[in-house]
Design a protein around this nucleic acid. Sequence first.
DNA 1: GCGATTAAACTAACTAGTTAGTTGAACAAT
DNA 2: ATTGTTCAACTAACTAGTTAGTTTAATCGC
Lengths: 205, 205
Amino acid sequence: MKRGRRKTENPEAARRILATAERIFAEQGLAGARTDEIAAGARVNKAMLFYYFSSKRRLHRAVLENLFRQLRDSVYPLRSAKQSPREQLLRYVNSYFDFLVSHPNSPRLVQRAAMEAGQNFAWIAKEYLCAFHRQVSRVIEEGIASGEFRKVDPHQAVLSINGLTVSYFAAAPIFSKVLGHNLLAPQALARRRQALLDFLDHGLF
Amino acid sequence: MKRGRRKTENPEAARRILATAERIFAEQGLAGARTDEIAAGARVNKAMLFYYFSSKRRLHRAVLENLFRQLRDSVYPLRSAKQSPREQLLRYVNSYFDFLVSHPNSPRLVQRAAMEAGQNFAWIAKEYLCAFHRQVSRVIEEGIASGEFRKVDPHQAVLSINGLTVSYFAAAPIFSKVLGHNLLAPQALARRRQALLDFLDHGLF
DNA sequence: GCGATTAAACTAACTAGTTAGTTGAACAAT
DNA sequence: ATTGTTCAACTAACTAGTTAGTTTAATCGC
């Protein structure tokens, strides 16, 4: 029998660190983020980062894992009901869009990780991105087979859909500044979703 | 009359530094790049970076300026001849695509700079991106007016075209690793260009 | 032509400041 | 008492930027 205080299953401090790290890593990147800043943002002693997450790299990895887990849980149920490929694809794009809206740090984190093209992201790509890619391209293949979609290269289509969806959010901060109005405001988001679905509608179906 | 050694018009060392910096900044970002690594890569004493470019930040800025100047010079002549909006747009997308192929560092540099959403990139966005944005959206407006394009939100369409074009190149390194074949190989690029134009064709026209 | 002069190009060694990560002690809950 | 948690202070390694001085080559007076 264990004596003394038992380990908290999900310490408040660790959650705060993770949340702050997500924001700072999204803003500054892995190299640009400062552990002191993360600690200060989480209102926690710096040593706590290393107590809970061992190293900056592992913290970064934990942030990505956390994000992709949420992404999978909220977007993944792709081929559940008896839906047509078109419905499946639209549901996928819509829920992906919703996810990006509710997780504003995610696009920049993922973009950054993808660009690093390095050691610590390859496994995530294998574990999550590949699964998504396969799922979506299968839906497209089915749609083509059933005559519902145009004859497109499914592989390319997946990349197009992805770029079309994510790039808006990744560039939103700078474009908001330049264009003078907030691209992440509800109205702007509604317009974007509309345009995205419309574009897809004519580009694919 | 001036005595002593004259200034070299375009010093070999400075060019090597700029070229290496472009690569390293694209790979590692502004914060992740090491001045020592850039100097070593350019086979130059580290002090030369500061001799020619004053600081890491200014070097980074010089890299971006250099890139955008080239981009403008090779892609900008958009509304020159008497071409239909459709032809103008296709020419723009094609030459942009060509530029990305011949400048493999550019997408990651720009993506990174855009995500920083900070002080040092805002001016570039104002100086170059805005001009591009205005030009392209005007072409789209004309296309809609002449009935050649579908009735789309020009603003959104520009962002879509941009995302569609750039995101492929930005993500190419990691996807090449994951998918197991080089997305920047000539064959893959040809397929991508095809898919991009096809998608645009049906999405817009 | 030729040595003296001057400014540009370059270098090795250094510095001041930063940063990820550590430590050892204290605290709190069982 | 024991164990998970928190903290202030510390350190070893690193990094942007400097410095003091050397080399190279163009220009001038002769």
